[in-house]
Each structure stands twice: as structure tokens, then as C-alpha cells.
Design a protein around this nucleic acid. Structure first.
Lengths: 344, 344
DNA sequence: CTGAAAGCGCTTACAG
DNA sequence: CTGAAAGCGCTTACAG
């Protein structure tokens, strides 16, 4: 049962004026008699008239709405990003349509399609961990619909991006473990499909090689972002003939999975294994021991993505892709700090 | 720069048919020549035609869209509820517009207004912790726009609701502490404005009175759902001349704040104070000690709210408010289990 | 089987 | 200052 909302026509009929006059009165346009305007505005208030946005958007060919697709709204990282996105969007007079892909390529694709039909003026997307084809994005680009990638991006897409320097951040985290005496450092690297994973892997390798350490493929564990995966992969790592004495986890959720495994197996942190992760969720400092983690300025990143997108929407000039790289900060806590035997 | 999407008119022009024919061909209506249909469908695919949903919604006076307002998308509880809502909505052919009030009454109000203008066919709302006026909801009801309240509801609104038995759940949690030897039980009760808060308070009082214990107002701490509030209130409770030996926190986030305070002050859980909370977030079992918590079937509750709403949207009959109460389960972990001296 | 026309609720030149 | 008309992209009786 659709409700029967008040329309401009109802107001016009009741006041014996044309709909054009009502429209002008309600939108503060000039060239309208003060008395007419007052009458219209009062009746609109009395009847709680709300303009039908479908109609105005259709006629103006503008929705002032941007579509957002993140893998999971419940992740701390994305919910903070969305805070930044909404803030910047509202400040610029835009609405935000939030959707999640649930890490599914198929869902990402249908979300793109649904939002396109709904006439969003642009997209901010963080790729699902399954996404390895990009045709749905190329279609957007061909149609001239602005797109900004956020956090999880792909080099196959020539669009604006907002990211951190993943390689450098992972190298710093790994170096930190080396400085704390680790010599066999494993990594819970994340999904193999994401380019962010490979950037972090490069940083991990950089740090090991700087220190003359070999890269042991057995210490590199790819997997999805679920806690279950972290638990299983950590078990496998600790079952190695030479288990690791340090672990880089590319998200706090993975780190928590690893910690559960360590606890179950009686492995002490940081004495037996030192641990550092990414995202610096509030939970990091509440765990025992508190977790060292790479902090990202995620709200700012959300704002930046929105500003890039809106600039693109409002610019007549052809799009010039721009990548904004944000600084990170390694927050050191007890999970990675050890008494290091001073050598040499 | 709005993109210039392909329209039905473009297809019609190129194929030398009328827009009506194109429209019929694309929607699998009968009474159309197979050849015509094939030509239209092929061209639409080739040009990646996407129907403009603003136009179809306008003409059909239906958006098949429901609006959702939750206090915070990042809370585990709400992100799970949204999973249930999206699942049920999509199964019924509806889209979901997600918004958050950020616990702000003002924001809740503008979200209602924006979504109304956007012509959602109904609302699922969980009240902000600030909400103590209900005129924005009464307006919806007067307009005949279906509304279902979820979790945080108010007795002032005669609409369908999906809730747990908060009184019974809080009583059970409190009894559990009593059985574990607590005799001075405090409660982090949540925001004073929410009726859910008062229901839980009633349950807390029930359990104390059953056991012949007095209700000490000094042990009842109202406050918002922030961790900061929990930390401060817990400090105040522990500063009492006779501090509590048990604590009921009405959410895991509050419990975590309390735990931080206990740790800082060297108070042991459960030896010095036993702790039980609500929501049973995954983090509960990872804390040390693992946290006892009241589990709610939140995805199911989201599904139920959606089904109630859609039934209302699609029914011609006048709305009969229906309240669905879901069962809870107290998950007992180490934070509340003590060796109790057997008496008598 | 197909097209012309009216209409969804609004905005926007254009006359007067 | 106000109204009639056209139009946004689509759907839906109604003729033919």
C-alpha cells in the first residue's frame, strides 16, 4: 500500500494557483508576490509537503547522490571510512548510498548495476577480496561515470585512488619485528587477488632482504580476511619444523585469530612469537597483550575519496586520475616488544 | 558532469520503432513479435542499456525500497541486523537504503526526511540514544508510511516491533551473578532515554528482590553507549565506600570499558568482581577473561523486522501493530564464574 | 503486433 | 508577478 503523499498539484489546486507558481514559491525563486509565497509556504508546512525527489532528480538529470561499495560495513576500517565519506558528502550537499559486497564479486557487480540504475552520479569502491575481473568497472568508465577506488584498488583500473603506502608500511612493521630480535618472520598476507596484498608482501620482503635474511615461502600465508582463515593458517605456520618467531598480520582481525591459536597452543606473546598487525582498531589495545598495529588515517581517507569524486562529478574537463597516498603510523604495544640480547 | 546514459528513446530511434514497443520488449510482455523483441534486446545489451529507475519508480509510484536507520553501522549488533535485513529484503525483491543516526536525534530526523523525499516505501528504525520526542515518527504514521521499530523502541509509538524480552534477559544475567556469590551487583544501564534501558532495569531489580536484596541507587549507572562513559562510570562505582562485587553491563562495548578500568586498578575478574554483559559479540570470547554475555538472534531479528515491514507495505488492510519477541541465551564464560562457598 | 497519447511529479523557458 | 506548455524517461490503457 503506497502512501498518498501531498504533491505540488494538491497545493496548487487548493490555493487556486498554477503548479509553476507553487514550485517557484517553495524554492525561493525571485519574481513571486510575497503574499502568494507566504500562502504556499504555509500550506506546504501545514500539510507537511515533501518534494518528490524522484521527480526533481529526473527533471534536473541530477541526483546529487554517490554510491559506496565496501566489502563489509561491519569492519571497523570501513565504518570509519564511511564516517569520513558521509561527512564530506553532506558538506558538499550530496547524499550517500551505502552498500556492501560481502566480499563477493557477484554482489559487487549487482551493486554497481543497481546503483547505476538508481542514477548515482559516481562511485567510491573498495574491491571485494574475490574481484579479479574488472569489466563492471570498465563499463562505468566508458559511460563516463566517475569512480574512485579506496584502500583495495587494482592497477588495472586507471582511476583516482586513495591509499596508504602499503609497501612502506609493511616494511616498517617487519623491520620493527627484526629490531625486536625476530629472525624467522611469517606473514598472514591476506587474499592473493588484491594488489594491496602484493604491495605489503613487497615491503615484507624488502625488510628481510635489507637484513640479509632469506625469504622462506613456507612463512608466507595467503588467505581471506576471516578469523577462521587466520586460525588455520597460524596453526600451519606453528606446525612447521622451524616455526616462526615473529608474525605480521595484515589486519587486526587476522591478528586476533592468530592470538587465539597461540593461546590454545600455549605459545607466549611476545616471548615465543612477536606480533604486529594493521588497522589499529580500538580493540587492539584491549587485547592481552595489547597489539602493535599500523594506524591509518581512515576517516581522512574517506573524506579525501569523496572530495576527489565530487570534484570529478562537478568538473567538465576530462578525468585525470589522481592517487592520494596517506601516511601511516606504527603504534607499538606489548605484543611486539621484547628484551633483545645486545649483540656485537 | 552527468553522464549521458542510453535511454529507451535512443533504442527506439535506432530501431525505427516506438518507445512503447521497446518498453514492452525489454520487460518480456506478451504481444510482441519475436523478431522485434530480439532486435531490441540485442541492441540494449550491446549498448548496455540500464533502465532509469527514477522514471520507472515515478510512473509506477513504487520504489520497492525500504529505508533503515540505525544508531551506528559500525556496531556489531547493527551490522549483523543489517545482514538479516538485506537478505530478507532482496529475497522479496526490495532494495535497502542504509543510514545511521550517529546516536543523534537531529540526524535521525533529517534521515527520516531525506528518505521520505526519496520515496522509500517504509522504515526500519532503531532509535538514537538521544531520541525522546517522536513527532517525526508520528508524521510517518499519519502519512500511512509503514514503520517497524527494531531493538531500541518506544512505548509511545504504536507500531510493529522486533525485540527481545529485555526484562527477562537482564533478570537472568543478574540471577547468574547472584548464583556466583555476588551480593552487591551494579549495573551499567545505558541511556536513560531508551525504554529498553528501563526494561533491563526492571529485570535487574526483579532478580535482586527475589533474593531479598535491596536496590541501592548508588549501584545504578546510566550513561551513553560509549566506552568512555563506561570507563568513567565504572571508576565511580569502584570508588564507592562499598564497591560492587558484580556488574551487569548492557553491552559488550560497555563491558570492555569496565574491564579496562578494572585492569588499570588491579581489580581481578571474576575474583573481585564478576561481570556479565549483553550482545555476545565475537570479541567477547577473545577478551581475558572471556566475557559472559547475553546472545540475541540478531540476524533473525533483522529478517523478522523486514518481513513485518514488507507485509505491511504490501497489505491493503489497515496496519495492526505486532510485536515479535525473540529468545535470548546467556553464554557463560570465565568473567562470571566463581567458586562459591556452599552455604547452608 | 505496434504506435500515439496521456501521465507520474516536478522544473524551466517563454508569453503575457 | 503568473500561467500554459514542454519535457525529464518511463509505463499503460486504448486504437488500429
Amino acid at each position: 500500500m503506497r502512501s498518498n503523499q501531498v504533491t505540488i498539484k494538491d497545493l496548487a489546486r487548493h490555493l487556486n494557483v498554477s503548479v509553476a507558481t507553487v514550485s517557484r514559491a517553495l524554492r525561493d525563486l525571485p519574481d513571486i508576490h510575497p503574499d502568494t509565497k507566504r500562502a504556499v509556504v504555509e500550506l506546504a508546512a501545514a500539510w507537511d509537503y515533501q518534494p518528490n525527489q524522484l521527480a526533481t532528480s529526473l527533471v534536473k538529470n541530477r541526483t546529487r547522490t554517490i554510491g559506496v561499495i565496501v566489502p563489509n560495513l561491519g569492519y571497523y576500517f570501513f565504518s570509519m571510512a564511511i564516517r569520513g565519506i558521509e561527512e564530506a558528502a553532506h558538506a558538499a550537499g550530496y547524499s550517500v548510498l551505502l552498500t556492501q559486497s560481502n566480499e563477493s564479486y557477484q554482489r559487487e557487480l549487482t551493486n554497481i548495476q543497481d546503483l547505476t540504475r538508481g542514477q548515482v552520479e559516481g562511485f567510491i569502491v573498495s574491491l571485494s577480496q574475490e574481484t579479479s575481473q574488472y569489466e563492471h568497472f570498465h563499463r562505468l568508465i566508458r559511460k563516463g561515470i566517475p569512480l574512485v577506488l579506496f584502500d583495495r584498488e587494482s592497477p588495472e583500473l586507471q582511476v583516482s585512488k586513495v591509499v596508504i603506502d602499503n609497501r612502506q608500511a609493511a616494511a616498517q612493521a617487519t623491520r620493527h619485528l627484526l629490531e625486536n630480535g625476530c629472525r624467522r618472520i611469517a606473514i598472514l598476507a591476506g587474499p592473493d587477488y588484491l594488489s594491496l596484498t602484493h604491495q605489503r608482501m613487497s615491503g615484507y620482503c624488502d625488510a628481510l632482504q635489507e637484513n640479509g635474511l632469506e625469504i622462506d615461502p613456507a612463512l608466507i600465508a595467503y588467505g581471506d580476511y576471516s578469523q577462521r582463515a587466520a586460525i588455520e593458517l597460524t596453526d600451519e605456520l606453528m606446525n612447521l619444523p622451524e616455526p616462526p618467531d615473529g608474525l605480521v598480520a595484515v589486519s587486526d582481525r587476522l591478528a586476533v585469530g592468530a592470538m587465539m591459536t597461540f593461546r590454545r597452543r600455549g605459545i607466549r606473546i611476545p616471548e615465543d612469537i612477536a606480533l604486529v598487525s594493521f588497522n589499529n582498531e580500538p580493540v587492539s589495545e584491549l587485547l592481552s597483550p595489547p597489539l602493535s598495529s599500523v594506524a591509518q588515517p581512515v576517516m581522512e581517507m574517506g573524506r579525501a575519496a569523496t572530495e576527489l569524486l565530487i570534484r570529478q562529478i562537478e568538473s567538465a574537463a576530462p578525468m585525470v586520475p589522481e592517487t592520494r597516498v596517506f601516511p601511516t603510523q606504527l603504534v607499538v604495544r606489548a605484543s611486539s616488544v621484547r628484551q633483545v640480547a645486545v649483540t656485537g
